[in-house]
Design a protein around this nucleic acid. Structure first.
Length: 604
RNA sequence: GCGCCCGUAGCUCAGGGGAUUAGAGUGUCUCCCUCCGAAGGAGAAGGUCGCAGGUUCAAAUCCUGUCGGGCGCACCA
């Protein structure tokens, strides 16, 4: 296993991400808890009947759903709990909702925890439609939150896991392209999806190991070796060999010591395919390519913690150990001279070969050893980010994992759909062997990392998409990523200007948000939503919500910027409070961009 | 043939059971810089959510079928 010591380990990263018990709890949890308390109180008061089944009540309270309504006229949060509980409580939904409103109103007037805590979070609760409970957040709560954000900006956007005592240890394996050629634009999506997912999981409190699995022996590497030797010897590359320009570059760039070892291998080991000239050259070439891949990925902002070679799974005994475990459990079978895994016992439509009759292992053999190796390292959860063409292997790997004694739910395959790269309406072909492909490096030169990251982050991994490079380049400055970045630059510009004019920032937001329809309050309500966005993204393993949030925050800021004068020396007190609000907005926008691995420039 | 993913505005895509106004960006059209950054803002036009049934008080959303597109069904790597 190759690890790089240059950057922090997953555990160090997890520890380094600050989490604040106030900032790290999505507001909707606070609201949900308040609704739950209101329900209990209403029952204790006798306003609502106590259900015969106490367990059913607990289940109901646990399942309370609170969401941000589509229209802000319906409040900051809404719950359908009254409608859901009508049957259990034997009351009309509207009646239940009214009882909850009364309790929430009461709580807003008193301090929680026997007078030591804060006021209840909800004001202006109301009943609407068939029994929806609409709620408005107390302005003071928003103000407290914004003050907390400014007090510890680096903690903002990092969610505290609800019930986990220790962080979940997650392995995210992605890209894993064989080092037989440079990464192509076809690999880009997987690279971004894996990295984005890793960032989101980390923000949600999990300890994430980013892992790259590569093949360093076998047929493909051999073919690469042959393809490099051919031009060196002035012979055309074989039909099934690799033909890209990089092959020629490798051929002319063979260092003296490698050439010497190759020459020696040709004399001494020509009969041994593991040690002959082709093997020597192939191994050298693939390692050179792997290093190139590593630097291409680094340019994308994608860094791996572990580079795991397929060969090491054998030399370190993981494959043997997995096979022995399966054999002991009775899941293996010798048939036709090959070793089979009884995948059908787990619902697969056919059994799968682990070791061929030739004695060579299949990829599936490696996969099994790898599952064993990963869980052996102590991971709670494995995520595989695979191309859509791999979905045939999903079932067998999970089945094998289950046969090895692990839970299927802890082996998750994220299938990333195809990207059709199009230039001027013509699809670009992506064949490494034919040498007709666009490299990742070329793509980035044209459109830039921030732009590419945003593009993939804003689309769900399961939809096939058309990526028109020409259009992405031509409309460069009108790309949505710049909209968010521009808003951030503007916020910073306002803060700079205020500082230059000698305007101070207020020590607290105070009453700035008391008028709930003011530009200030509207902006504050968007700022405060980030933890929910992070939580959703981590739960669904999707990042579109984060780009949407960044766009919404930028839009909300634009409206605020239009309607509210921030830097105004004739009203220093108001200015001071608004500067604080802008500071919180900038913190939140920067945090959401950081989640995406996108820069938040102070000027553009 | 079987299985998985996907058909939403001209284009690229969100939304994936709930309040009869389905969103964003881009494109098109009209306006707005003596005013904290116009990479911006205000507004308009643009949709039978592939089609047909079904479940529900309620369906773009769930179920079935169907059409269209992608991918997979190896003792290949």
């Amino acid at each position: 296993m190759t690890t790089s010591g240059a950057h922090p380990t997953p555990a160090e990263r997890a520890r380094a991400l600050p989490r604040d018990p106030l900032l790290g709890v999505p507001l909707r949890h606070v609201v949900r808890d308040a609704v739950g308390r209101a329900l209990r109180r209403a029952i204790a008061n006798g306003t609502l009947p106590a259900p015969a089944d106490a367990n059913a009540l607990e289940a109901l309270i646990r399942g309370i759903e609170v969401e941000v309504p589509a229209s802000s006229e319906h409040g900051d949060y809404a719950s359908n709990i009254a409608m859901k509980s009508g049957k259990l409580l034997q009351r009309a939904p509207a009646q239940i909702a009214a009882a909850l409103v009364a309790e929430l109103d009461a709580e807003a007037q008193e301090r929680l925890h026997g007078g030591a805590g804060s006021l209840g979070p909800i004001t202006q609760a109301s009943v609407a439609g068939p029994g929806f409970l609409n709620m408005r957040l107390r302005a003071g709560l928003l103000a407290d939150l914004l003050d907390a954000i400014i007090a510890s900006p680096s903690a903002w956007g990092h969610v505290v896991p609800v019930d986990a005592k220790s962080p979940l240890r997650v392995n995210v394996e992605f890209v894993s392209a064989n080092p037989t050629g440079p990464l192509t634009v076809g690999n880009a999506r997987g690279a971004f999806v894996g990295d984005l997912l890793s960032r989101v999981l980390e923000a949600a409190g999990q300890e994430v190991t980013r892992e790259y699995y590569f093949n360093d022996f076998g047929e493909q590497v051999r073919r690469l070796g042959e393809s490099v030797i051919a031009p060196r010897d002035g012979v055309p590359v074989a039909e099934d060999g690799y033909k890209g320009d990089y092959v020629g570059e490798l051929a002319t760039g063979i260092p003296a010591d490698v050439a010497a070892r190759a020459a020696e291998a040709r004399e001494a080991h020509s009969a041994d395919p593991d040690r002959d000239e082709v093997a020597v050259i192939g191994k050298w070439a693939s390692e050179r390519i792997r290093i190139g891949i590593q630097s291409s990925l680094a340019a994308l902002g994608v860094e791996f913690d572990v580079w795991r070679s397929e060969g090491s799974l054998y030399t370190d005994g993981h494959v043997d150990r997995a096979i022995e475990k399966l054999r002991a459990a009775g899941w293996l079978e010798e048939r036709d001279g090959a070793l089979w895994f009884k995948s059908t016992a787990f619902g697969d439509d056919k059994d799968r070969v682990i070791k061929k009759s030739t004695g060579a292992y299949t990829y599936f053999g490696s996969d099994i050893g790898y599952v064993e190796e990963k869980f052996g390292r102590g991971f709670d959860h494995l995520v595989y980010v695979w191309g859509a063409d791999h979905h045939g292997t999903v079932a067998r790997v999970r089945n094998a994992g289950e046969a090895l004694g692990y839970q299927k739910e802890h082996m998750e395959m994220l299938l990333v759909a195809w990207v059709r790269f199009v230039r001027d309406g013509v699809e670009m072909s992506m064949s490494k062997r034919a040498g007709t492909f666009v490299t990742l490096d070329e793509l980035l030169e044209e459109i830039g990392v921030d732009s590419a990251r945003w593009y993939f982050a804003s689309r769900s991994a399961s939809t096939a998409i058309d990526f028109d490079i020409k259009a992405a380049t031509a409309r460069n400055s009108e790309n949505p990523v710049y909209y968010a970045q521009y808003a951030h630059a503007r916020m910073q510009s306002i803060l700079r200007k205020a500082a230059a004019e000698g305007l101070a920032t207020a020590p607290a937001i105070g009453d700035l948000l008391d008028n709930e329809t003011s530009a200030d309050a509207v902006l504050a309500r968007v700022i405060v939503r980030l933890p929910e966005v992070v939580e959703d993204a981590a739960a669904h393993h999707e990042t579109q919500g984060v780009t949407t949030y960044a766009t919404e925050l930028a839009t909300a800021f634009s409206a605020f910027y239009r309607d509210a004068k921030v830097v105004d020396s004739s009203a220093p007190e108001l200015s001071a409070k608004r500067l604080r609000l802008v500071q919180a907005a900038a913190t939140s926008l920067a945090a959401s961009l950081r989640l995406l691995g996108i820069s938040a420039p102070a000027e553009m």
